[in-house]
Design a protein around this nucleic acid. Structure first.
Lengths: 70, 70
DNA sequence: TGTGTTTATACCTTATGGGGTATATTAAAA
DNA sequence: TTTTAATATACCCCATAAGGTATAAACACA
């Protein structure tokens, strides 16, 4: 199970997109994608979800144990 | 699988806590707990994670399909 | 019914996230 | 190496999330 920044980086590269590409497709600023992939923790949920929606995902509560173990 | 507001409401009531109690334990404002349980989507991730930490959980990307199916 | 408890709504102020621009830094290719 | 693309960092401004206070509504119980 991947945390947020790992997930976004992985998916973005799988699709061969630049941060710029991803920002445009998600309708957010390039700066936001950067902050996201750098692990900034104070991001707004709605903006993060706009990005995750491109990958058919969204933020939800996950057991911290499961997240770190797997 | 529960979405954010369902999860928080459920866990809070399992422990017999008021919104006030939860706010104090999480170190956030009462208003934040209210917004959270009302489904406000523009919340800050770090604040949400402070609440989820009380339940051993945190925000992570989850398949929208899995979230809605299960 | 009334009374206390919990939750919801409204208004205001303050702090800061988001985004733009510019500048560095790094990476990759020629 | 040089050149170009991609990513990172720094500054500024604006919109708004967070939180406090106050009020109202919903709920539970005697």
């Amino acid at each position: 199970m991947l945390n947020l920044l790992q997930f976004v980086k992985q998916r973005r590269k799988q699709l061969g997109l630049t941060q710029q590409d991803l920002a445009e497709r998600a309708g957010v600023g390039l700066r936001f994608i950067r902050d996201l992939e750098q692990g900034k923790e104070t991001l707004r949920m709605d903006k993060v979800n706009e990005v995750l929606a491109l990958f058919g995902h969204e933020l939800a509560p996950v057991s911290s144990k499961e997240l770190n173990d797997a």
